[in-house]
Design a protein around this nucleic acid. Structure first.
Length: 810
RNA sequence: GGGCGAAUAGCUCAGUUGGUCAGAGCGCCCGCCUUACACGCGGGAUGUCGGGGGUUCGAGUCCCUCUUCGCCCACCA
């Protein structure tokens, strides 16, 4: 009867079981079951953070998706109508960069190819290589509903993007602005504040003398870290309260090298305490200077072009010396410093570490650049998102991130959403140049071909939207928004838990919450679970460039998906990083593999000792027939279930919270649960240290014995507790548990039943003699004491001894 | 410049509201191929819970401070 090989074979088992789950639609949610549309099951929904469409699975994805899969499987077993929506992100700037690199290998740029052909080529590239990661996720056991796979650049989701843009425009929350934004001279696009990341770098602070126009012997000294921008200076600013310079305000200085006169102005922006208290104003190349320039109605000459080279653009005629034309900004810095030094205008150079912004995609130093961009006005959107977390409608775990979230939203700035890229959603704006006034702006949900005012030709805005402008709609758009009739939207929105890394709290998490309120009036989820980062033993983030990554598929091949999942879940406290050794996979993943093997061997013991006869449900066994060991292990199971439930916490906020928000978390539940590692450890302890180490041993004699009633009792209890253990463990190690559960000789089980769909065990009440359970603990204590003594006296295992137990009262 | 987190056995880490909380896994030592499992079984050693001070009957657990790492935010040119 024993069809179990000595060794568990993860590769064969996992593939076979995954295929059967798929074939039986085990991952497919049924909208009609949702209580929100009249069904009988509470929905439980997770939307997968969409990986970049060109991404390859790395251990970070493995970690992220394992957590989600554990939650979804758990919810499914708890009887929820569980939905895990998978999908990919077109990842505008990242994907475009990949394709541009391919073109570069052919010696071409996207401009050589042309926009239409470039987009087509990128589409092909995505079609051929994209979505690989979704296939890879199957290998780690992801039970996502693949029938609902989404893609941010698909027609449906593109429609959502347009709808969102137009609605916000209609509400006055999308606007076109002319200002200094972050510009990547390599990607040739603007970036949002979040996409321009600070890095601390050593730098120099250059002090330059600007002589007074009419009194060349006197000069004002200004400090700057970017001397090359001086070609675009339009003023010097001093603080109005600064007595040192008060009398100079209104006079002019001569701009070195350029030789033109610029005014000395008074503005609060100048900090008397910094440097000399005099700051040069370059409105076109510094966001702060831009504001000063606007306040004082100053010109805004552009002296650096899109590629980051010195050039005379708007209003800059005559400012850039001919031999600096086309010179890269950093080379130009050297040359300008040399010239200043030669002319005696360079007063001093000192070391000055400072933070420099870099493009988050290509790491190029970002250039502040004056340009026209589309923005979203964020403050009104932020307000409900702020209230959501403050009021407990949305909880962020670990809790400490809530403060970070609140702080960011309180100081939120408008979001630059236009990108000068080709890969992405085209800005749904058209211009008519023939109208009066010209450049009539037409914002539309549908493509526009003729001007609605003059019927003349129109041209569409050249820009595309920030990738995150589609991502922030993900919980809505994947469920069918803006289609008000969408069944999934009614059945599954709001979703439940969002699982991601803290790095994208601002990029994505908070914006989704804003979008949820802006377009649906409800937060998109009630829980944000922020997990840690996978790091190496030196605590460095695993990354491709460092070469310290671990390929999850290598781990699957070597030890199986369950071992991978076990290691990740068991090794990860709430919000803490997971440390793994890329140089020693055995060390990192052996515990998971060993545990899976242990489960396998417990299964082998059961199946080879139970016999062929079907095992009757425990409920049919006469309680009087249960032994002390039976009572004990049943009680331990009960406690294990209760502990696992406590570690995992409530699936969703308990209803009937205090007004005003009926969906808010109760204070006592707000930080409860989601301790996946505690849950995993509890289940492991039950199976290994209680079931295997003790109970199993007590059944050996009984199963082989001649007392039929006792044998039946042992069989029933054995199957019952192992069944319970498999259910408890299934979310973490789904393959091995399903493989064993399928083989359990449970009487009357339907042929196509699956553990993945089996109910989560209920803790229940101690129904089988708590007194007997306690008595077995005494037996255990005695055994432990005897073992200890044998050890102390170095008695060989084969040697039997007589034991006399004397009770305390004689 | 603000804010936050971490420092517990050789290693990776658990320790929710202060009172069996000094633990787990790996590693190490001793003994075992005991008919499910040597990817295992039984036994064992190891920490002044980063330093200092304080509150308390009692503190890894609360307060202050110092040190060392790490993260987030930030227009000081």
């Amino acid at each position: 009867m024993l069809d179990l090989p000595d060794r568990y074979d993860p590769a064969a088992t996992e593939a076979e079981i995954y295929a059967r789950w798929l074939a039986h639609g085990c991952f497919t949610a049924d909208a009609a079951r949702s209580t929100r549309v009249g069904g009988a099951a509470e929905p439980f929904t997770i939307v997968m953070p969409p990986p970049n469409v060109t991404a390859i699975l790395h251990v970070g994805h493995g970690l992220n998706n394992t957590v989600q899969d554990v939650l979804v499987r758990w919810a499914r077993m708890r009887g929820s109508d569980a939905l895990w929506v998978p999908g990919t992100d077109h990842a505008g700037i990242a994907t475009q960069n990949v394709v541009e690199k391919l073109l570069a290998q052919e010696g071409r740029t996207r401009f050589d190819v042309g926009r239409a052909a470039f987009v087509q080529r990128t589409e092909q590239f995505v079609e051929q290589t994209g979505g690989v990661i979704l296939q890879q996720l199957r290998a780690i056991g992801a039970s996502a509903d693949w029938t609902r796979t989404r893609y941010t650049l698909s027609p449906d989701l593109s429609r959502a993007v347009r709808e969102a843009f137009v609605r916000l425009y209609e509400r006055g929350l999308v606007y076109r602005g002319h200002r200094v934004i972050h510009w990547c001279p390599r990607c040739l696009t603007s970036l949002s504040d979040e996409e321009a990341e600070f890095t601390d770098e050593p730098g120099q602070l250059y002090q330059i003398a600007y002589p007074l126009s009419d009194e060349p012997a006197r000069a004002l000294v200004v400090a700057t870290t970017r001397p090359e921008t001086m070609l675009g200076d339009v003023a010097l600013a001093v603080n109005p309260a600064d007595a040192r310079y008060r009398e100079l305000v209104g006079r002019t200085v001569r701009l070195p090298i350029v030789g033109i006169d610029i005014p000395i102005i008074a503005d609060e922006y100048a900090d008397p305490a910094f440097g000399t208290g005099v700051v040069k104003i370059t409105p076109a190349h510094d966001a702060n200077d831009f504001e000063v320039g606007r306040r004082h109605h100053l010109p805004m000459p552009v002296v650096i072009d899109a590629q980051g080279a010195m050039a005379e653009e708007q209003e800059a005629a005559g400012r850039v010396p001919p031999d600096l034309h086309g010179v890269d900004r950093f080379a130009a810095r050297e040359q300008i410093v040399e010239r200043l030094r030669a002319s005696g205008a360079l007063v001093r150079v000192e070391q000055h570490p400072h933070a420099v912004r870099h493009c988050y995609r290509c790491d190029t130093v970002v250039e502040p650049r004056l340009s026209d961009q589309w923005f979203v006005k964020m403050a009104p959107l932020a307000e409900p998102a702020l209230q959501a977390v403050r009021g407990g409608t949305v909880r962020i775990l670990p809790e400490r991130w809530e403060a970070v979230y609140v702080n960011w939203l309180e100081n939120i700035r408008d979001w630059n959403i236009s990108r000068q890229l080709w890969w992405g959603h085209r800005v749904p704006v058209w211009y008519c140049d023939d109208c009066d006034p010209p450049q009539q702006v037409i914002v539309s949900r549908e493509d526009v071909t003729r001007c609605p005012y003059c019927d003349g030709p129109v041209r569409q805005d050249e820009d595309v939207l920030d990738t995150w402008f589609s991502s922030w709609l993900w919980p809505l758009s994947t469920l069918g928004w803006p289609d008000a009739e969408a069944r999934d939207l009614a059945a599954f929105y709001p979703t439940d838990v969002l699982v991601t890394a803290p790095e994208i709290l601002f990029f994505w998490v908070s914006r989704m919450i804003m979008a949820g309120y802006a377009f649906m009036g409800r937060a998109p989820y009630h829980t944000v679970y922020l997990h840690g980062t996978a790091r190496d033993t030196q605590h460095r983030k695993m990354s491709k460039s460092l070469g310290n990554g671990i390929d999850p598929l290598d781990v699957v091949r070597l030890y199986g998906a369950d071992a991978l999942r076990w290691t990740l879940v068991a090794g990860m406290g709430l919000g803490t990083d997971v440390i793994l050794d890329p140089a020693d996979l055995e060390k990192s993943f052996a515990p998971g593999r060993n545990f899976v093997t242990k489960l396998w061997n417990i299964g082998r013991f059961l199946l080879s000792n139970l016999g062929d006869a079907p095992v009757q449900p425990l409920a049919t066994v006469e309680p009087a027939l249960l032994s002390r060991a039976d009572a004990w292990i049943l009680e331990r199971l009960r406690l294990a279930v209760a502990e696992c439930d406590a570690a995992l916490g409530p699936l969703r906020p308990t209803a009937a919270a205090a007004p005003p928000d009926l969906h808010a978390w109760r204070p006592d539940e707000r930080v409860a649960g989601m301790r996946l590692n505690e849950y995993a450890e509890t289940a492991r302890r039950f199976v290994w240290n209680e079931l295997a180490d003790w109970y199993l041993e007590t059944t050996k004699g009984r199963l082989a014995g001649t007392n039929a009633a006792d044998r039946e009792a042992a069989r029933a209890v054995l199957v019952h507790v192992f069944d319970g253990a498999l259910r408890l463990l299934h979310p973490v190690v789904p393959f091995i548990t399903e493989a064993l559960w399928q083989r359990l000789p449970i009487a009357g089980r339907a042929p196509d039943s699956f553990l993945i769909r089996a109910p989560w065990p209920a803790p229940g009440v101690p129904a089988h003699g708590p007194r007997e359970a306690e008595e077995f603990d005494i037996v255990r204590a005695a055994v432990l004491a005897i073992r200890q003594i044998r050890g102390d006296y170095n008695l060989p295992p084969g040697r039997t001894i007589d034991v006399v137990i004397v009770s305390p009262d004689g």
